[in-house]
Every structure is written in structure tokens, then in C-alpha cells.
């Protein structure tokens, strides 16, 4: 599966390089946009020392973990949300006649290596936060776990967004709220949001497990919303449940695929 993905990704990279100018512009733009995200956080902290009870470095830790997971998914699976274009153009049919999962083909579809800039930026921010914060070394094992859970959760969200587009062929933008919307949401401490919203993204759509809950453990903080301690460790469970749901939805979507007229 990894080999097939790498093969498809390499193919699309070569296809993108057939247009060198556009390739160069995308690389530069990708880096510029990534830099702006961090700039926003730094500007906020130039005016205040804490953000809803969290210091600058703690906020950068939250930003780094969520964004690393998000940007990895953005590079490797986000292309799934172009499925409605493939449904409308009939090109999904040509993917379905190949002996490779259409999910994999879509994830690799028009793969752009230029997005690696954003991943590097997230990794640098996380690295900085980890070195600046005085963290309990006994709690650091949670960092790779939370990033892995974040990757699974975002991948599941993108898959759900793709599955939804089998129904919402004409309104693919709606599903961006799930993917890019949640990517934005997890960049900040959840304590800046209202209680109801945080409940929703804890118990309904388990975004709190991308970084918020496990980060409270790593940072050795109590939850300002007062959730019990064991919630910090539920990330893998939440990720697994969401992944199963997404897989089911994807299967249903494919089975109900209607193709186009010709």
C-alpha cells in the first residue's frame, strides 16, 4: 500500500513538474502561508502574556502538535476531498477499474510535494516549544502518541468528508468545515472557546483528542472545563472509533455511487 502510494505520488509529482513555473509559485506560496499562521500567534503574544490561561510556549506546543498531524494529512490524504470533481467529470470511473483502492488513488491524486514546507514549519514550532517548555520527561511519551492519534483523526475526517460528497456532489465546500475548519480550531487552547463548543468537539466530533486532552497531560495542567483525568488517555480509542466510522461511511458511499450519464 505504501509502495503503491509512493508510486502514485511520484507520478503526480512528475506531472506537476511538467509546469515548472506553477510548481515554483506553489512552493513559495505554501511557505508564505505557513509563516503567517505562526506570525498570528506571535502577534497575539506581543500584546498579552497568556491566552486563556496558556503561555506563549504552551500555545505553540498545542499549535505544533495539531499542525504537524494536520499538515501531514493535508499533504498525504487531503486530496480525497476532490472526489466530487472526479464524480462530476466521470474520472472516478477510471479509478474504479484499476486493481488499486480508489481511496489510495484519490489520496495520492495530484500529490504536491511542495506542501512539505508547512510540515517542516509545524515541526520547527513543535521542536521550539518542546525545548522552551520545562516538561516532565516522564510525560513526553504522550507526544508521539498524540501526533499519531491526530493523524488518524484527521485522516478519518477527510475520509468522512469524501464519503459525504457521494451525497453532496454539488456542495463539496460544506465538507471543508470538517477538515480545514477543524484544522484551524485545534491550533489554539480550547479554553478560548465556549463550553458548548468544547463539549461538541469532545463528545461528538472527537477533536479534543487531537491535542487538547493529551496536551493537558503533557503540560501537567488541569482541564479548565473540569473533565476527569482519564480523558487525557482516550485519544487512541477516539481515533479508532472515528476511523471505523469513516471506513464504514466510505464503503457505503462507494456502494451507492451513481456514476455519470455516459
Amino acid at each position: 500500500m505504501v509502495r503503491t502510494y509512493a508510486l502514485l505520488a511520484w507520478t503526480w509529482t512528475r506531472a506537476a513538474m511538467a509546469y515548472p513555473a506553477s510548481f515554483a509559485i506553489m512552493t513559495v506560496l505554501g511557505l508564505a502561508v505557513a509563516g503567517m499562521d505562526v506570525a498570528v500567534i506571535l502577534i497575539v503574544f506581543a500584546n498579552t502574556t497568556t491566552l486563556a490561561g496558556f503561555s506563549r510556549d504552551e500555545t505553540l506546543f498545542l499549535y505544533g502538535t495539531a499542525n504537524l498531524a494536520f499538515c501531514l494529512c493535508d499533504m498525504f490524504v487531503s486530496n480525497i476531498d476532490r472526489i466530487s470533481q472526479h464524480i462530476k467529470a466521470g474520472t472516478l470511473d477510471t479509478m474504479l477499474i484499476r486493481p488499486v483502492s480508489p481511496w489510495l488513488q484519490l489520496a495520492a491524486d495530484r500529490f504536491l510535494p511542495t506542501r512539505i514546507g508547512r510540515i517542516a514549519q509545524a515541526a520547527v514550532v513543535l521542536g521550539y516549544a518542546l525545548s522552551a517548555l520545562d516538561l516532565d520527561p516522564g510525560r513526553l511519551w504522550m507526544v508521539p502518541v498524540m501526533i499519531a492519534c491526530g493523524i488518524v483523526i484527521f485522516t478519518a475526517l477527510w475520509t468522512l468528508a469524501g464519503a459525504l460528497q457521494f451525497v453532496l456532489v454539488d456542495a463539496p465546500e460544506v465538507t471543508s468545515a470538517f477538515t480545514y475548519g477543524t484544522g484551524q480550531l485545534t491550533q489554539y487552547p480550547f479554553s478560548i472557546y465556549g463550553r458548548e463548543l468544547v463539549r461538541g468537539v469532545t463528545y461528538v466530533l472527537p477533536l479534543a483528542f487531537v491535542n487538547w486532552q493529551p496536551a493537558l497531560y503533557v503540560l501537567d495542567r488541569d482541564d479548565p472545563f473540569g473533565t476527569p483525568e482519564f480523558m487525557r488517555f482516550l485519544g487512541p480509542v477516539a481515533a479508532l472509533v472515528l476511523a471505523l466510522l469513516a471506513a464504514l461511511a466510505w464503503r457505503q458511499g462507494l456502494r451507492h455511487y451513481r456514476s455519470t450519464g455516459s
Binding site: T11, R14, A15, A16, A18, Y19, A89, G90, T91, D93, T94, I97, R98, S262
Partner: peptide, 14 residues
């Protein structure tokens, strides 16, 4: 083997 006359299964830019 499947051929759709109206759409190609080949990679456009390669």
C-alpha cells in the same frame, strides 16, 4: 480490460 471512448485512463501530463 476496460476502455471508455469518452474519457482516458492515461495520465494526461506524462
Amino acid at each position: 480490460g476496460v476502455v471508455f471512448g469518452q474519457r482516458t485512463t492515461l495520465w494526461w501530463d506524462l
